[in-house]
Design a protein around this nucleic acid. Sequence first.
DNA 1: AATCAACCATTACCAACGCAACCAAATTCC
DNA 2: GGAATTTGGTTGCGTTGGTAATGGTTGATT
Lengths: 146, 146
Amino acid sequence: MTKKDDFSLQDFLPYLLNQAAEESSLSFQQVYKGRYGMLRTEWRVLFHLGIYGELTATEIVTRARIHKTKVSRAVQKLVERRFVTRERDGDDRRQERLTLTHSGKVAYRDLQEIGERYQAQLTERLTQDEVAQLKRMLRVLAGLDK
Amino acid sequence: MTKKDDFSLQDFLPYLLNQAAEESSLSFQQVYKGRYGMLRTEWRVLFHLGIYGELTATEIVTRARIHKTKVSRAVQKLVERRFVTRERDGDDRRQERLTLTHSGKVAYRDLQEIGERYQAQLTERLTQDEVAQLKRMLRVLAGLDK
DNA sequence: AATCAACCATTACCAACGCAACCAAATTCC
DNA sequence: GGAATTTGGTTGCGTTGGTAATGGTTGATT
């Protein structure tokens, strides 16, 4: 048997990353879907606004690397459900400043807290140090580090 | 500022995993899409057949954790494009044994080789040891280790 | 100041997804 | 041994996603 045949999906990084990502987002998805009827993209937009405060749609697109049509639709939903308010920028009337409403902030804090607990549970089979290493490497792979 | 406010998306594991997974599958997607007009699910099915040989649709579902309708449609496409043949099982006529055709094998080997090179390039900013650690942890998170 | 290119965001259109319902074959149960 | 249940796989249909085109605004060129 040659070296070539040793190749396995279990060793193919994009595949492994995908499996881990899917697995890790699945149960958390139940939370924001069940509690607030949110889709994944909506939750992600909410979180960005919760963390960074006022943002425009384009800023969310570049920060979160979500397709702009997805952001557009997610914002629409969040506005409908009164989690977010949009307001045309005075200086540049093309863009809209997005901010969380009160209930948006409440939802954010609620989910953020659950998220932290969920993360802790997710990594209980790894040491603190391993988790730190893992995150560092993921940032490298995602091209998120400076 | 309290501890709570330190929470950041850059530190939320499901988010990081998703970013890394998306980033790492993006350029490779161009390859199987460009060369063979395949979708992600089709490529995944092809790889499973390439690695494990003859499988049924259900076996692919459980191994790859892909929804059965996705597998069903991917198999359909792969059969149409003559990468895969299906054959009713004699013992249990509900299931179909799936195997790669010659051109299916060729495509698999081609993509597998590119995949390996791609993986090497992806991890060039990490040491061998780090990659091994990373894969181990991802398997834990994905629930893939015994 | 009129034109043109660049930009922010949305929409129209079609492809892909996922749930639930379904068909056909096999197994269980009485 | 026949009805009910389970299992392998497909399909219909409403939802979600991406590409490309559009509307509306700004900035640059002249």
